[in-house]
């Protein structure tokens, strides 16, 4: 389809620009074997930069190169400066770049360009919708998530924040193991300031504990959820022992006596299909015992670390040994 477009070198309307080769010598070490089209367009780009032209045709040229190589930051930079110089319609630019963003999700420049545009357009609500849609093709895209967080923090409007928890629920319902969504929840609830209606932090902590416990009960071997549990307790300076009744059943084999009839919202039990004991729970119990201190606590913790190293989590045996050594130091006098 691209073959229809003639090379810049063959287009009369570009005849006034002198193309500039990249290399001054013919045989550079470690060259890239460019296509004719790419070499042609970048030769003209270098020619344009040299004369400093900022015009509509520069927008066409830079878009062409971006389609071939979206990581060419110098081209993006020049394009952005051209847009400003021409006083272009930046919302049209944002729209034009939607397809580029979806096609090249993993490219830094694609998202950074949007950020530059957004600081001027200042209409974050539709942008959140665009981001949400882009997760359909890659639900863990790092740039997209950090860009979403930037939008929220930069514009910092209550209207933006208010639907984030629903959005996170939606993402975690699609994949309870999506760590990006878990991190986003931590960002929204604990790290980016306190918004109206969230000043009762005890209530918020309680809500989050129930949320994470329910998620752990659905799929206990999910490190994202355990890390979230650890994270919120540490953030709120709540000792791990506060959730010992919840964690203990996950650190043991299945309890044949357990009846599934009683529903305890505070302490949802592991599902019957769960693979138990689950290593993050065993680790968690060991941390509780270690924090309790004294030789009794350290010995209980040591038993669990030994079990992790020899049975449940053998790849990390040396780490569990390290934990044992460090803990023993605290009781040797």
């Amino acid at each position: 389809m691209e073959q229809e477009t003639p090379l810049y070198a063959d287009r009369p309307e570009w005849a006034d620009v002198t193309p500039l080769e990249q290399h001054e010598n013919d045989q550079p070490l470690a060259p890239i074997q460019y296509t004719v089209e790419y070499k042609d367009a970048t030769d003209y780009f270098r020619g344009i930069v040299k004369i400093g032209e900022k015009s509509e045709r520069v927008l066409e040229l830079t878009k062409d190169i971006i389609d071939m190589n979206p990581a060419h930051y110098s081209v993006w930079q020049y394009r952005y400066e051209t847009l400003l110089a021409l006083n272009s319609d930046l919302e049209a630019e944002l729209k034009l770049m939607n397809d580029v963003a979806i096609e090249h999700l993993k490219t830094y420049q694609v998202w950074h360009h949007r950020r530059l545009l957004m600081t001027r357009i200042r209409k974050p609500v539709p942008e959140l919708k665009f981001i949400a849609a882009s997760f359909a093709s890659d639900a863990k895209n790092y740039h997209t998530w950090s860009y979403r967080q930037w939008i929220l923090a930069h514009f910092n409007e209550d209207e933006l924040w208010k639907e984030e928890l629903d959005f996170i629920d939606h993402m975690l319902n699609a994949d309870i193991r999506n760590n990006s969504a878990w991190h986003h929840r931590f960002f929204v609830v604990f790290e980016s300031g306190i918004r109206p209606g969230e000043t009762d932090r005890e209530r918020i902590l309680k809500r989050e504990l129930i949320f994470v416990k329910q998620n752990i009960s659905l799929a206990p071997n999910n490190p994202s959820a355990w890390n979230y549990l650890r994270g919120i307790l540490e953030h709120e300076s709540v000792p791990f022992s506060k959730v010992i009744d919840f964690v203990r059943p996950y650190s043991l084999t299945h309890d044949p006596e357990a009846t599934g009839d009683l529903v305890d919202l505070e302490n949802p039990p592991p599902s019957k299909e769960a693979a138990l004991p689950c290593p993050p729970a065993v680790e968690f119990m060991a941390d509780i015992h270690e924090a309790q201190g004294g030789s009794d606590g350290v010995l209980k913790a040591t038993e669990l670390w030994k079990a992790l190293g020899s049975e449940h989590d053998t790849i990390r045996k040396k780490y569990w040994d390290h934990r044992i050594r460090e803990a023993l130091k605290t009781i040797q006098t």
Binding site: A174, D175, A274
Partner: peptide, 9 residues
């Protein structure tokens, strides 16, 4: 283990 709870991950 996936705990009989498969997801894309």
């Amino acid at each position: 283990p996936n705990d009989s709870f498969p997801t894309p991950t």
